[in-house]
Design a binder for these strands. Structure first.
Length: 315
RNA sequence: GGCGACAUAGCCAAGUGGUAAGGCAUGGGUCUGCAAAACCCUGAUCACCAGUUCGAAUCUGGUUGUCGCCU
C-alpha cells in the first residue's frame, strides 16, 4: 500500500512558521494541523501568537481553539486527534500540513508511536509524587533501579517527572519502559513526508523573540491573562504554564514586578527556542530551511515546493 | 588639584597568605502520556608592573581605570 503524503513545517518559536504554513498549504492544496501544545486552548490568543481568522485565509486549521484551558491534553490526545484529522484530510484528497513547534507531538504522529499500552493511573502517580516530596527524587530513582535498571541508568536521579513515568509504566504494564522505547525508536514513518525546519540566525531570532513579547504586551496580553484569572484559571493548570501566562499570573499575584515578569518571559522564550532547535537537530531526515539564505518568503516557498516534488509528495 | 573607596569569567558575586564558592547569561545535550514541561553538562587564574614570602587574588610600593566626597 502506498504511503500517504504528509508535510511538516516546524521550527523555533517566532521564526514565522504560521504565516509560511498558510502559504504552503495554499500552494499544495493542503489543510493545517497545528502541533502546538498551547494554541489548542481557547481564550489564549495573544500569548500563543495565534493566527487570526483573516490570516488563516480560508485554509482550515485543526487543533487550534479546540479545548478549554482546564481540559487535559498531552501527546497522547494530540496524536489521537491528529491521526483522525490526517485521515479526514487525505479522504478529501488534500495534503495535511502539520505546523508547529512542539517536537514531541510531531514525532508522535510522524512515527505513529504507540502510547496506548498504558492508561495513566492517577492514584499510583499521586503516591509517587508523595514519596518524591518526602524522600526526594533520588529515592524514586533507586526504586526504578530495581524494576528497570536500564531506565534508571538513562534517567538522571533529579528528573522526577521521567522517573515517575517510568515507574508508572512498569506498574501498569509490568514491562519496562526502556524496552518499550527501544522498540518504538525502530519505527519508520507510515507517511511519505517532508519535514521542514525553518530557522534563522540565532542572535536575530532572539531579538525577534524579545520584540514579539513587547508586541504581545502592546496587544493586550496582560488583559488576556487577567480575564483568564477572572475565569478562575489557576497557575497550576498545564495551560497556565504557557510562556507569558505563568509569569503574568505571578505578577498579578504580586510575586513579581511587571518589568521582571516581562524580562522573564523573554528569557524563558529564548530558552525554549534553543531547546526546540536541540530537538529538531537530532530528528532524522529533517530539511533545514535557513531563512537567512533566501531573499523573501516566496523564494522559500519555491524551494520547499521543489523539494516536495523531488520527494514525490506533490506533482 | 586634594582625600577616600574599589578593581575577581559577558554580568552579579564569595574568597584577606596555601594554590579561584555560587547565581545569571551563553553554548551543548537528554527527552516516547503534563513537552511553552522536566532534567543534565558547560568557562577565569583574580586590571597592570615591581617587590615581600617556600607560597599572593589575598601583604607592600607604583601605574592605570572607575566611583564618591572636597576645593
Amino acid at each position: 500500500m502506498d504511503k500517504k503524503p504528509l508535510i511538516i513545517l516546524a521550527g523555533p518559536t517566532s521564526v514565522g512558521k504560521s504565516s509560511l504554513s498558510v502559504k504552503l498549504a495554499k500552494a499544495v492544496d493542503g489543510e493545517i494541523i497545528s502541533a502546538d501544545s498551547m494554541q489548542v486552548y481557547k481564550h489564549m490568543d495573544i500569548g500563543t501568537a495565534k493566527l487570526t481568522k483573516e490570516e488563516m485565509a480560508g485554509i482550515p486549521h485543526y487543533l487550534i481553539d479546540e479545548l478549554e484551558p482546564e481540559d487535559e491534553f498531552s501527546v497522547f490526545q494530540f496524536q489521537r486527534y491528529a491521526r483522525e484529522y490526517i485521515q479526514r484530510i487525505h479522504e478529501k484528497g488534500k495534503i495535511p500540513v502539520i505546523a508547529g513547534g512542539t517536537g514531541f507531538y510531531i514525532q508522535a504522529v510522524l512515527y505513529d508511536i504507540d502510547f496506548t499500552e498504558s492508561e495513566s493511573d492517577d492514584s499510583y502517580r499521586r503516591e509517587l509524587e508523595q514519596l518524591a516530596a518526602e524522600r526526594g527524587s533520588p529515592y524514586l530513582h533507586s526504586m526504578l533501579s530495581e524494576v528497570d535498571p536500564d531506565s534508571a541508568q538513562n534517567i538522571h536521579p533529579n528528573n522526577k517527572k521521567r522517573i515517575i513515568r517510568a515507574l508508572e509504566y512498569a506498574r501498569l504494564t509490568s514491562g519496562k519502559i526502556s524496552e518499550h522505547n527501544k522498540e518504538q525508536r525502530k519505527r519508520t514513518s507510515p507517511y511519505k513526508y517532508c519535514f521542514f525546519v525553518l530557522t534563522k540566525d540565532r542572535a536575530r531570532l532572539y531579538e525577534d523573540i524579545n520584540s514579539r513579547v513587547d508586541k504581545m504586551l502592546d496587544m493586550g496580553l496582560l488583559d488576556e491573562v487577567k480575564s483568564l484569572a477572572a475565569m478562575g484559571y489557576k497557575k497550576d493548570l498545564p495551560s497556565m504554564q504557557g510562556l507569558g501566562y505563568k509569569e503574568l499570573l505571578a505578577y498579578l499575584d504580586n510575586k513579581l514586578s511587571l518589568e521582571d515578569a516581562i524580562d522573564l518571559i523573554k528569557k524563558e522564550t529564548r530558552h525554549y527556542a534553543k531547546r526546540q532547535l536541540t530537538w529538531f537537530r537530532r530528528e532524522k531526515d529533517v530539511i533545514w530551511v535557513d531563512k537567512d539564505s533566501f531573499d523573501n518568503e516566496e523564494k522559500i516557498l519555491d524551494y520547499m515546493i521543489e523539494r516536495l516534488k523531488q520527494e514525490g509528495i506533490i506533482n
